[in-house]
Design a binder for these strands. Structure first.
Lengths: 356, 356
DNA sequence: CTGTATAAAGAGACCGGTCTCACAACATAT
DNA sequence: ATATGTTGTGAGACCGGTCTCTTTATACAG
């Protein structure tokens, strides 16, 4: 294997310059596409570069220009369809503007998020899109701003932070879905979310550290209250983080004296887990229990019955976030804003009508 | 907004050194964690760094060390569950070894793949994992090798390229699935893949430019041949790239004089499209048509009936690819290998038994 | 034919780290 | 007291680009 040398020093502008018999500065002008160079010299340099298979060192380039052409994205969980769709939206916006994307996974954990942010700042990304795991620990995000790196929050807003955010209209979405359930005659409604929580219960909505979840819960509760239903917090359950947890949450929920007749799932993963739980408990949807899930995920349209969902238009959210960030990077004079992407309820077959 | 200045020069080692009243070299030693420095000076420097909120410039660091700590991944389509799972496997392996990951999407297009590879090489990634869109255009991959950057192919192998590859045991998987279908009494079997093709038909297996698809088709065909079934190529269809295409492929396939009784889907996206097509055609699975899909995707276990699948263990594949690449980066003396991750057939309910 | 404007090419500083080498200070051996 | 070693610190080259400033060559005007 003659190429096992492995690190034969890469070809540099200096090498090309020497081969083309011009100065390093001139070669750099040709290869970097700036300044003025005669056609003849340009050809010489290009020929030499091709012969040597010159590839520019973007690192060095970034060092002197101060721009990396990269935008960093910190998401909760790439495997979640919500985020992978969002990432595609961001990537598309980025590509259109000539930027590339580095993705880092936080696993919805604060420490991982912090170090991901630090890492990306270290790599001198031109801007950052972050899905903050918690809205009550924001020092690291403050630092991003202080470092002069444009920042856009995704899916969750932090009012104290005076920074752009792209979110769904979570409150309205929850309100619409909840009103629909009530209109169908349901009176005992549960809201199930994946957010970590000490115990499954909930006492103080204001303390939910994830704004998307909080606003949905608020919307949910406000509808129950306006409908005059008792104990609006009673059927709210957090902590459906994995299969076992969800199973036990659902089991406990349904074995109450008067169990809920409808479940609202905070995201498509929770929705899927709930679906499977109900299936394994031998319960039929929507005859025994009704459900609505957030996100128009793959699986929701092929089940029997197909699942009624809140369509979040995540791709648009991602694209918008990307565009906004790029506008910031290019110093567009914009007011700090929270951009809300509207959602819509897609009625399929997972909600029963209850006669009373 | 007092921080609208936006680019207040970042804090450098020199700044920290000045504040700590030591030389740049000493400050660098403390901040970079190399060399020897007395405890007293270390404290001074750390204090100054903390006060100034120093963050190292990884770009500059990479420039002098020649290592970026990044591995580049070029995948076909992040939104495909296959790839997002693989990416998680790769990321986990990377994180464990202290590497970070940049992801680029090729959209299964050769040009996009080439420019992604170029870009990543330009960013001086320490290694590259690529899912080659085609196995017959490999000059850009040759160049990666010539540039001295370790490379691991993912999901598809290219024997001519003398480079590590991590794939499934595609041939065996297809054989197992096909034999199973035949054992259930099926005699007219179709294979449907998403690969681009001029027309849907297929004349020369050897010319399939994607090794995974080719090997699966080979396996499929070999079983049909060994079972003495006529015209093994007859029901092989490529080009099920999107919903419309798949619909028309399926429609044409089933409106033949003697339509296939079982379909084998090349990946979970194709599988899902097939499922929906059949549903919209009013055909029942498995009564009217049987099917098997590759990949244990979300949706396959919640349909009615649940789908019999070929479980590909993609996470393991990704992890293995990551580990292999890192071993290469760290100059482990390994022979070039093709690593095959075994698959297994998970029988669920989408295949009917045909009595004859 | 000289003066000046202009275009093209070269020289070298710079970005922010790492790292080699020189050197100073002090401890231990002879 | 001198030689030798050890440890901690400073000076400055270097990575591979960009970019400013200077120099050289050429064109055109007076």
């Amino acid at each position: 294997m003659e190429d096992s040398a492995h690190s034969k020093r890469a070809v540099t502008v200096a090498d090309v310059a020497k081969a083309a018999k011009v100065s390093k500065a001139t070669a750099a002008r040709v290869l970097g596409g700036y300044g003025v160079v005669s056609a003849k010299i340009t050809d010489q340099v290009m020929a030499a570069a091709a012969a040597l298979e010159y590839r520019p060192n973007e690192l060095a380039r970034s060092m002197s220009t101060g721009r990396s052409g990269i935008i960093g994205v910190v998401v909760g969980d790439i495997e979640n369809a919500f985020f992978s769709l969002a990432v595609r939206g961001i990537s598309d916006a980025a590509r259109l503007a000539g930027f590339n994307v580095i993705i880092a996974n936080s696993g919805e954990e604060l420490d991982a998020e912090k170090s991901a942010v630090d890492l990306l700042i270290g790599k001198r990304v031109d801007g950052l899109i972050v899905t903050p795991a918690r809205c009550d620990s924001i020092e690291h995000l403050r630092h991003v701003r202080r470092a002069g790196v444009p920042l856009v929050l995704f899916d969750r807003a932090i009012p104290e932070l005076d920074v752009d955010a792209v979110t769904g209209d979570d409150r309205d979405a929850a309100i619409t879905a909840t009103r629909y359930l009530i209109a169908q005659g349901h009176r005992r409604l549960a809201y199930v979310s994946a957010m970590d929580a000490e115990d499954g219960g909930l006492t103080d909505i204001g303390r939910i550290s994830n704004s998307a979840v909080r606003e949905r819960v608020e919307g949910f509760v406000s509808v129950l209250t306006e409908a005059g239903l008792p104990n609006p917090l009673h059927y709210i359950r957090l902590g459906a983080t994995n299969h076992q947890q969800t199973d036990s949450v659902i089991k406990r929920l349904l074995s109450e004296g008067s169990p809920p007749t409808a479940l609202l799932a905070s995201d498509s993963l929770v929705g899927l887990r709930i679906f499977k739980s109900l299936q394994s408990l031998g319960l039929s949807i929507p005859k025994d229990v009704s459900m609505i899930s957030f996100l128009d995920a793959d699986w929701t349209s092929v089940t029997v019955p197909p699942i009624t969902i809140v369509d979040q238009r995540v791709y648009e959210m991602g694209k918008l976030a990307g565009e906004r960030l790029i506008a910031r990077i290019e110093r567009a004079p914009l007011a700090v804003e929270r951009l809300r992407v509207s959602t819509s309820l897609v009625v399929r077959g997972s909600v029963a009508t209850i006669d009373r």
